[in-house]
Every structure is written in structure tokens, then in C-alpha cells.
Design a protein around this nucleic acid. Structure first.
Lengths: 139, 139
DNA sequence: TTGCGTGCAAAGGTTTTGCATGGCA
DNA sequence: TGCCATGCAAAACCTTTGCACGCAA
């Protein structure tokens, strides 16, 4: 096989714990580094990047790419097959806020696209652009 | 209004010409800079970025984000205001084809977002990424 | 012992920004 | 004249990489 062996190091356990604590919430590589150092554990950012990259490749994390100037978001995948809880992102063009949406209606979009238009949507790269509620009222 | 006045400078004309020559093909900011200097016209990259950013904001260019480490792609939009309302775009990540979709179901997405999530989707800027039917079968 | 993992710092690439100058209207 | 636009270089940003050392198995 071409699968490299994985060593069970202290840093690996720290990172896994940290991600597990977030329980399904989204996070960035910087979030992990920050949260670890908040607890007094210092782990190099390169290590964090290398680890989450590998987890994403193995399908243990889902990676969301927003745009070139925003850090990538990651999310723990419960069980590779048992979760259809994909979510979409809304990006406000005015305040720049990123909103995460997990919604029945939105989940159906993917199904509709596939059935009616033969198109498999990749929700990890799809971002809805527009104006959020706060900005609309504040304006 | 908060729309700033736009001056018709030499650089602006050069950049617009350059984009027009590409006629609908996609390009990156670096492509524009390169093509201009190939013709002997030197335009600062900051100027190019500022101009295409503004064009994208005004809906004259559509912006495609592949991932954080790749340059963003832009593409000239035919007519800014024609009927790109309630009309979405699907971008195939494999063949690169851009598919225009006008569909009852999809039109409802905007309404749903507005009513349930207080978010006004700008459909001219939103692009769904995924794999199209032909590519799925051909694969 | 073997070779994967780690840390640090530096490099990588794209995009943004500060500031003084130049040009359109 | 009053803004807006430009250029240059530097900064900012996220992410990757080189290399020597440490550590799991």
C-alpha cells in the first residue's frame, strides 16, 4: 500500500482532542493553534496544517474553501457515511461575515440539482453571496 | 449615492481592451498584467486588482474561487443587468463548463434565504461548484 | 534502528494597503 | 480645483517547505 503509517504522538492526541471538543463546529487551522496555546500546549502551526490536511484527505474532516483571502474552514465528519449534514455558506458582501447554514430546504438543493439538472453540487466550495440581515437593516 | 465616480484613464482603457479581447474566457489578475506587458503597456498590478475588484462588485465580471492557494478566476459578463436575475450558475470543476440554470425550484432558493435566514442572495455573483452530468457519465 | 513527526523559520503565492504623485473632469 | 487613479514597494495573509532533531514502533 501507499498509505504511510501514522504515529500516535503527543501532538497528534492534543490536536485530535481539540477538534473533538469542537464537536462538529467549523474551525480554521488558526483556531486550533490558538485553542491549544490557550491551554498551555504549544504545537507548531506546520504540524497542525500537516495533520488537518491529512485528515481531510482521509475524509475525516471536511474542508470548505471560501475565497482566497479567507482561511479555509474545516469540520469534523462524524462517521464517513452516516452524516449527510453538509452545510452551505453565505458570505455577506457588505460586512464580510461568513454565515453557516444547515437547513432542510438547502439540503434539498443538492438533490434537486442532481435529479433535475444532473449536476452534483460540491457544497464545500459553493458560497452564496449577498447581503445579510443585519446589514440590510443597519443600512 | 455612495457610488464613486469613475474616471476614464489610459490604464482603464487598456485593461478593458485586454479583457474584451479575451471575450468571455476566464483569466486571472496575473494574466491581465502579463498580457498588457506583452504589448508593451505597463500597468501596476495594484491597479489591475483594484479595477477588476470593482468590476466584480458592479457585476461586470464574475469571480470564481478555486481554492485558497490558486489565483482567483474572472470572466466577463455579457450584459450586466439583462436577465441574470433569479438565474444561477453551475460551474463544472472537471470540464470547466459554465451552465446557466433558470428554474422554479432554484428561484425559490432566494425567497427561502430571504424569509428564513434574512439573507438576500445575489444570484449574479453566486456560483455552484460541482460535477456536471456529462463528466459524471464520461468518467 | 527505521522512518515518521515536529518545530522553527523562511519561503511561497496571491491580494491588499500606504503614500506620494499624476491625471481626469 | 477637487477628487479619483496610479505606481511602487512593502505589508498582510494563509499555507507550504527545508532541514535538523526528536520520538514512536
Amino acid at each position: 500500500m501507499n498509505e504511510k503509517q501514522i504515529y500516535n504522538t503527543k501532538q497528534r492526541r492534543l490536536i485530535l482532542d481539540c477538534i473533538a471538543e469542537l464537536g462538529g463546529e467549523h474551525f480554521t487551522a488558526a483556531d486550533v493553534v490558538a485553542q491549544l496555546s490557550r491551554k498551555g500546549s504549544t504545537v507548531g502551526q506546520a504540524t497542525v496544517y500537516r495533520m488537518i490536511d491529512r485528515m481531510a484527505e482521509r475524509g475525516e474532516l471536511r474542508k470548505y474553501v471560501i475565497d482566497g483571502t479567507t482561511a479555509a474552514c474545516y469540520q469534523l465528519v462524524g462517521t464517513p457515511d452516516a452524516d449527510c449534514r453538509e452545510h452551505f455558506h453565505l458570505k455577506c458582501e457588505r460586512c464580510g461575515r461568513l454565515i453557516h447554514v444547515e437547513c432542510e430546504e438547502l439540503s434539498r438543493i443538492a438533490a434537486h440539482m442532481r435529479e433535475e439538472h444532473g449536476f452534483s453540487v460540491d457544497s464545500s466550495k459553493t458560497v452564496f453571496y449577498g447581503i445579510c440581515g443585519s446589514c440590510k437593516q443597519g443600512k
